[in-house]
Design a binder for these strands. Sequence first.
DNA 1: CCGGACGCCTGTCGGC
DNA 2: TGCCGACAGGCGTCCG
Length: 271
Amino acid sequence: MPELPEVETSLRGIAPHLRGRRIVRLVARQRRLRWPVPETVDAAVAGQPVESLSRRAKYLLLHLPRGALILHLGMSGSLRVLPATTPAGAHDHIDLVLDDGRCLRLRDPRRFGSLHWAEPPIAAHPLLARLGPEPLSPGFDGAHLFRLSRDSRAPVKNFIMDSHVVVGVGNIYASEALHRAGIHPHRPAGRIALARHERLATSIKTVLAAAIAQGGTSLRDFVQEDGAPGYFAQALKVYGRAGLPCPGCGEPVRQQRIGQRSSFYCPRCQH
DNA sequence: CCGGACGCCTGTCGGC
DNA sequence: TGCCGACAGGCGTCCG
């Protein structure tokens, strides 16, 4: 589910409610997520103030005085800020109870999300250490894609979903960015010229920024911190639109599995 | 080193 | 109506 825009939306939604607040305690109803949540996390966060929040790739970071909580939403995770007394649903696994009577609640039906405790230097944590550049940063551009792809025979869709290449691009936005750039998702990344990689990098930035502006894409599970859905689903050009006309040329959108994931593209617009 | 396949989970949907 | 397989915003790991 959550790709970069959904994680960024979650960050912007929860940050005002958490910044400066103290975490009273962590309540874990289910510790078996993508990785087990160690009980040592509970003691590390109890009584600590949240100094700031940030995002790296699809990870949310809550910075405390002695380290950071690293939170990943997996495929089906979402975060709400609620009164701590709100009854927990079946998939409400973790609460961070705050000192204002509310809590940050993680819901994750599929349990592919995860929660970690990292001590400084945070960026050296194994989950963060080897990540590629942020797509919305100046350090990510067509020259970067071009350089990294020269020896790659992987389909360009897989290439841009590789977190060593660029972070945050998941299955929805990979299809959308490639459509916008006019590049066929199956084309080997190493057989794309610099000018087209520049167009691709720009498309990735444009699509992600537009999705953030709409609060992300809600297909099933994703909601913003106040429970509202993201509204970018109505702006999707190809994802989930197999058989429907391409908004650019009217040709029916095609669906094909690439690297175990459904991919959507226009056979006329994308080469 | 690379690319591709496989699990990890639960819920939902389409076909029979 | 019920059952069963396929599939769903991710990603670490294993295998050839």
